[in-house]
């Protein structure tokens, strides 16, 4: 059977597999006929944060919810993993240590070392490294199904357990935004410290505009100011939107669409796609977004202190 399949041409193979999918879809459709559109299911509620423990400090809502849990998980996982490796640093590393060392080296030399001078890299590496590892672990645990869905519960012996779901702290705007604000204030502070208050803002201006009339220069300065503020949005939304989009894709392909449309047969086609997206997100996007965030942080810091614009 296997030999006979392997002997077929590529086109025929694809056709055969696709035909198999169609047959399975038809069979599933016959067994579970369409139930029509499902209006009760709202996919976005997967990302809704219901307060588990309400905590209010005056007007401030510090309620514990799913996102806070993921933050704690990210914090605990990052610190524990790094401490574990740090304690067990051997002269002859095993595979895990080699992987962490490679990540450390990436954060230390590629992300930090390439964008600023050595003394500054020495000072800022802990911050940039923490950002890299914190976001990386945050993203990664976002793909581990955890019993966090309190909206849909499973009753076991009369006790309601939350169902398993995937969620990521970075798929909530508040968290990337807070990280971005820390970066934003850090690099402005570092720039002012390095160049002085007024010279720092002057350094925003591109070089070679000394002959320009004042109003035009003011206009350009306004654009530069806007671009600085846009960085807050671009840096935070890039991370947030990437992770959210990944989770949405996995959610829709992994069953969301089937439930929404009430069409079970569709799942035959969407489930493999969901698995592909899952692998893509875990294998590439989680690391890539952490890398981009940390690299941009490093570039902003380096540019704020560098001579010239």
């Amino acid at each position: 059977m296997k030999e006979r399949f392997m002997a077929l041409g590529t086109g025929k193979k694809v056709l055969l597999v696709f035909g198999l999918f169609v047959v399975v879809a038809v069979v599933v459709n016959m067994l579970v006929p369409s139930e029509g559109k499902n209006d009760a299911f709202k996919p976005e509620t997967e990302f809704k944060l219901d307060p588990w423990v309400t905590l209010k400090l005056g007007p401030l809502d510090m309620s514990l919810n799913k996102a806070v849990l993921y933050l704690f998980l990210a914090c605990a996982l990052t610190t524990m993993a790094m401490l574990y490796i740090a304690k067990r640093m051997q002269d002859r590393p095993n595979r895990v240590q080699t992987a962490v060392e490679a990540a450390y080296d990436l954060a230390r030399n590629q992300i930090t070392g390439n964008n600023m001078d050595d003394s500054m890299a020495l000072r800022w590496f802990p911050f940039i490294g923490t950002i890299f590892f914190f976001i990386l672990f945050s993203n990664l645990i976002g793909y581990v199904p955890l019993p966090t869905n309190t909206e849909h519960t499973v009753e076991v012996f009369g006790i309601a357990f939350p169902t398993f779901a995937i969620y990521a702290a970075t798929a909530n705007l508040s968290i990337p935004l807070m990280l971005t604000l820390m970066v934003w204030f850090s690099y402005h502070r570092e720039g002012i410290k390095a160049k002085g208050f007024v010279p720092y803002f002057k350094s925003w201006m591109p070089a070679g505009l000394e002959d320009m009339p004042l109003p035009a220069r003011a206009g350009i300065f306004a654009i530069e100011v806007i671009s600085q503020f846009v960085r807050i949005i671009s840096l935070s939304v890039r991370l947030f939107a990437n992770i959210l989009a990944g989770h949405l894709l996995i959610l829709f392909m992994g069953g969301g669409l089937v439930v929404l449309l009430g069409l079970a047969a569709l799942g035959v086609f969407t489930l493999p796609i969901a698995i592909l997206f899952f692998m893509f997100e875990v294998g590439l996007i989680a690391g890539l977004q952490a890398f981009i965030f940390a690299t941009l942080t490093s570039i902003y810091l380096g540019a704020a202190t560098a001579e010239g614009h």
Binding site: D61, M62, L71, C75, M82, T130, F134, S174, M178, L181
Partner: peptide
């Protein structure tokens, strides 16, 4: 897309703890 101040503060706390532990213990040791 609506940021919550409480969650932002939690982020600050979680990140701060991580930063403290990593910069004081883990990174120097590594």
């Amino acid at each position: 897309v609506t940021p919550g101040l409480g969650l932002m503060l939690w982020t600050l706390i979680a990140f701060g703890v991580t930063y403290y532990v990593l910069s004081k213990v883990a990174f120097p040791k590594i």
